[in-house]
């Protein structure tokens, strides 16, 4: 390939300036673009890049979901039953329909159909409103029933049967429950290891003194009475196979450790595993972040509606509608995945 030098440049830029020629400066053409097509393409590319960042933002949450569910499927099996599939399905339909009205709005704006565009944008907005209303209802139920994250999880408010069975009722089958019980079964030594137990020693020693969770309504660890060892036999099954169980005299393990939130008990949905709060932590973070994006999308669509009514858009210039539509569709896309992952666990 011949090298160019200054005397023989490869190409000569003789680019007509958008505002210097022919059709005159289109009011929507920015000064640094040469044509509406270039501007439109750039806008689209920029929007897709932004959508990619949103995908990665939610991707982190999907990762957390995958990890928690893979390691503790029983939590998800148990807890998801508290979600109302009907509301979830209605919300899915609402978003799909609003996606349709949005796509139609883009087509209408491409055809220069101003009134239709405005109408469809309004309908899409209403779809968002409907979605958020249903979400609010669902959230309200959960708050009321104590179905919340972390230490806010309070099964006593569930309103279902609350068998107050002790740890043994959890059976070895609730393997997660074995976490706390296993510690008990292992050694009778009640001393907690000072170095490792900084966080949990306080809780193990005296429940009320857990400074980090003053509002805990349930104890963080199973009570350390030796009677708890009823499930000790089942607990041995939790010992990793490559280690032979050690004699209690060889090991000075703490009686219990950070195994999570053990509440115990039974209700209509079966024995309650440990750490049910994870499911609600995942649920609220994922649907909460999604809800924030729905609100942001509604703000965008509201703004588009105002501009459409004002007559800003035409067959030549509909880019904002197109780009806003892409954002709304992404919000829909995320829900398409959230719905089965959260509501439709068998």
């Amino acid at each position: 390939m011949q090298m160019a030098d200054a005397a023989h440049p490869i190409s000569h830029a003789a680019v007509p300036h958008g505002d210097a020629h022919g059709h005159g400066h289109h009011p929507n053409l920015e000064h640094h673009f040469d044509s509406l097509t270039q501007q439109f393409d750039a806008g689209k590319l920029g929007m897709w890049l932004f959508l990619a960042t949103e995908v990665l933002l939610f991707g982190g949450l999907f990762c957390a979901y995958a990890i928690f569910r893979r390691n503790h499927p029983e939590v998800f099996m148990y807890a998801h039953q508290y979600l109302d599939t009907t509301w979830g399905a209605i919300n899915t339909v609402v978003l799909l329909v609003s996606s349709f009205t949005m796509a139609w709005a883009v087509t209408a704006s491409q055809r220069g159909q101003r009134n239709l565009t405005s109408l469809l944008l309004a309908l899409t907005f209403l779809g968002g409103v409907g979605f958020m209303v249903i979400k609010a209802i669902e959230y309200q139920h959960k708050f009321h029933d104590g179905l919340m994250w972390g230490t806010h999880y309070d099964p006593s408010k569930h309103g279902h049967g609350h068998g107050e069975g002790h740890g043994a009722a959890a059976h070895g089958a609730a393997a997660a429950a074995g976490h706390a019980a296993a510690g008990d079964g292992r050694g009778g030594a009640a001393e907690s290891h000072a170095a490792g137990a900084a966080a949990s020693a306080g809780a193990a020693g005296d429940h009320g003194a857990s400074a980090a969770h003053p509002e805990a309504t349930t104890s963080v660890h199973a009570p350390e009475t030796p009677g708890q060892g009823a499930s000790a036999a089942a607990a041995d099954a939790d010992v990793p196979p490559e280690r032979a169980p050690l004699e209690p005299s060889q090991v000075a393990l703490a009686p219990s450790g950070p195994a999570g939130l053990h509440v115990g008990g039974h209700d209509l949905h079966g024995p309650r595993p440990d750490n049910v709060h994870w499911f609600f932590g995942v649920y609220f973070t994922m649907t909460g972040l999604h809800g924030l994006h729905v609100l942001a999308g509604m703000a965008v669509i509201g703004w588009l509606f105002v501009r459409s009514v004002r007559g800003d858009f035409s067959a030549d210039y509909f880019t904002p509608v197109d780009l806003g539509g892409l954002y709304w569709h992404l919000v829909d896309l995320i829900w398409i995945f959230l719905f089965p992952l959260l509501y439709l666990i068998h």
Partner: peptide, 15 residues
């Protein structure tokens, strides 16, 4: 996960 002990780390060095 399969390698993880439940409960706290062992207190004695030999373990």
């Amino acid at each position: 996960k399969p390698r993880m002990w439940t409960g706290l780390a062992p207190a004695v060095a030999e373990t």
